[in-house]
Amino acid sequence: MTIKVVRGNPTPEELAAALAVVRARAAAASTTPPGAPGPRDAWSDPSRIAARRTRPPGPAAWSRTYWPG
């Protein structure tokens, strides 16, 4: 692995800290099996829609059958 500083002049401590983060991320990525699903995005989480209470049924209830609001 090669790391190149393209801007600035980091101290040896700053460079060591950055390298530790990069190595930790690489180690975490290598423990995930290939093809495993990643973390779910909050936008696609179904509980996001069901987390709020919906209003009681009324004349316009048909318009709220899919998107609450």
Rank of each mutant, 00 (worst) to 15 (best):
I3T: 10
K4G: 09
K4T: 15
V5R: 08
V6N: 12
V6S: 07
V6D: 11
V6K: 12
V6L: 14
R7Q: 15
G8P: 05
P10Y: 09
P10I: 10
T11F: 06
T11V: 09
T11P: 04
P12H: 06
P12V: 10
E13T: 13
E13P: 02
E13N: 13
L15Y: 05
A17P: 00
A17G: 09
A17L: 04
A17N: 09
A18Y: 01
L19T: 14
L19I: 13
V21D: 12
V21P: 00
V21Q: 07
V22F: 01
R23C: 02
R23W: 01
R23I: 02
A24I: 00
A24L: 08
A24C: 03
R25P: 01
R25I: 01
R25A: 10
R25G: 01
A26I: 03
A26K: 03
A26E: 12
A27G: 06
A27R: 13
A27V: 00
A27P: 05
A27N: 11
A28R: 08
A28V: 02
A28K: 05
A28C: 03
A28F: 02
A29F: 01
A29V: 02
A29T: 03
T31K: 12
T31I: 05
T31P: 01
T31A: 14
T32Q: 12
T32N: 09
T32G: 03
P33L: 08
P33V: 08
P33N: 13
P34R: 11
P34H: 05
P34Y: 07
G35E: 12
A36F: 09
A36M: 14
P37R: 12
P37S: 07
P37V: 05
P37T: 11
P37L: 04
G38V: 02
G38Y: 01
G38L: 03
P39R: 13
R40M: 13
R40E: 11
D41A: 14
D41N: 15
D41P: 03
A42N: 07
W43G: 03
W43C: 02
S44Y: 07
S44C: 01
S44K: 04
D45E: 14
S47F: 03
S47T: 09
S47G: 10
S47W: 03
R48Q: 06
I49G: 04
A50G: 10
A50Q: 08
A50L: 11
A51R: 14
R52P: 02
R52H: 09
R53E: 07
T54E: 14
R55Q: 10
P56Y: 04
P56I: 02
P57L: 11
P57N: 09
P57F: 04
G58V: 00
G58F: 00
G58E: 04
G58N: 12
P59R: 12
A60C: 10
A60P: 00
A60M: 13
A61R: 09
W62E: 15
S63P: 00
S63N: 04
R64T: 10
T65M: 13
T65V: 05
Y66W: 11
Y66R: 12
W67M: 03
W67L: 07
W67H: 07
W67D: 04
G69Q: 08
G69Y: 06
